[in-house]
């Protein structure tokens, strides 16, 4: 039915992302509790990082486990430039943070993409840990274990995005931009190249595709958005320290994609929403919290390879099939009666 109403993929994507943006706006209007607003901001920041990461992990099939490090670099560059060593405006610090993370990711991509499969995952894990150690020990820039405090909220003229409801506006804009740029990349020749790399990268190379260039492009793209998410995270938290950028942060990105559904842009978004809601529901069960999450991942991997989004689409397709079967049965009966 969706295909008949919206015949092109572009139309479906525009409607889909408009619905996501509309939900964010609706939540912004309806939610006035500060706790829930912070939850929405955290979820939005996670989406900014994880939607582009979905291209790397889902579309291209490279499970990077060091995104937490890039988030940290983004946060610390903003922290260093705005309070720790310099006092420049956060609107200038954010693009610099993006460029630093991009340059770092691109430089490391040469070594990392000599690896494949789980070797690549371990390589990125090591990079994430290396960056964590740098946050913890490079006191001049990061403040060491004590971290950096006083990171400002952005402002446009006199209008400071100081309150959570105002800050959510900025986050929502970047969620939309992260979604739009990722969709734009995934729909054309880049998307075709990423899918080919996931299916058989040796064959793609033998058919003339510059595989390394596309791998580096998407790795850097995902890192840049993770850096921006980190900068916004620093601004939201005001104070950051290395404990926010451990391996667990990187694992969370992987979990969002697996639970939500790899290979689609909306899957990681659903993953973030699901985990955020689940965290709230099982916040009081102590250590069981992690065990429930672990069990869910195992169940998803075993029974729902397409994640929650894949499950929704499967059920939708099944419902449509049943409905058309019912209709044809009714028309057959009517024909027989005539």
């Amino acid at each position: 039915m969706i295909e008949s109403l919206l015949p092109t993929r572009s139309a479906r994507a525009i409607v889909g992302w408009s619905i996501v943006a509309a939900i964010l706006v609706l939540l912004w209007v309806l939610v006035d509790n500060n706790y829930y607003l912070r939850l929405l901001i955290s979820a939005g920041i996670a989406m900014i990082g994880v939607i582009p990461f979905g291209l790397l992990m889902g579309h291209m099939g490279y499970m990077a486990m060091g995104q937490g490090g890039f988030i940290g670099v983004g946060a610390y560059v903003v922290g260093c430039l705005t309070v720790q060593r310099f006092e420049i405006d956060i609107w200038a610090a954010l693009p610099i943070a993006i460029m630093v993370v991009g340059a770092l990711a691109y430089a490391f991509s040469f070594a990392l993409f000599r690896l494949r499969g789980y070797h690549f995952s371990i390589g990125t894990l090591a990079l994430g840990q290396l960056l964590y150690l740098a946050f913890d020990s490079w006191e001049w820039a990061t403040g060491g274990p004590h971290g950096t405090s006083g990171i400002p909220r952005p402002a446009i003229g006199e209008f400071v995005f100081a309150t959570n409801s105002r800050f959510l506006i900025i986050v929502s804009v970047f969620v939309f931009l992260a979604g739009f740029t990722s969709w734009w990349l995934a729909r054309g020749h880049v998307g075709r190249a990423l899918n080919a790399i996931r299916q058989d990268e040796d064959l793609a190379g033998a058919r003339g595709l510059d595989v390394l260039r596309y791998k580096q492009l998407i790795f850097t793209f995902a890192a840049v958005w993770a850096g921006l998410a980190g900068g916004l995270y620093g601004s939201m938290q005001i104070s950051i320290d290395p404990s926010s950028f451990t391996i667990w942060g990187s694992f969370q990105y992987v979990i969002y994609v697996i639970i939500g559904g790899a290979g689609t842009l909306l899957g990681p978004v659903i993953g973030v929403i699901f985990i955020t809601v689940l965290d709230q529901l099982i916040a009081d069960v102590g250590v069981w919290n992690q065990m429930i999450l672990g069990a869910l991942i195992v169940i998803t991997v075993l029974f729902f390879r397409g994640g929650l989004w894949g499950g929704i689409r499967m059920l939708w397709a099944l419902a449509l099939k049943n409905r058309s079967a019912d209709r044809s049965a009714v028309s057959t009966q009517a024909g027989a009666a005539e």
Partner: peptide
Amino acid sequence: YQKNRLFFEE
């Protein structure tokens, strides 16, 4: 290739 290789999703 010795073992037939095509992009299996295309």
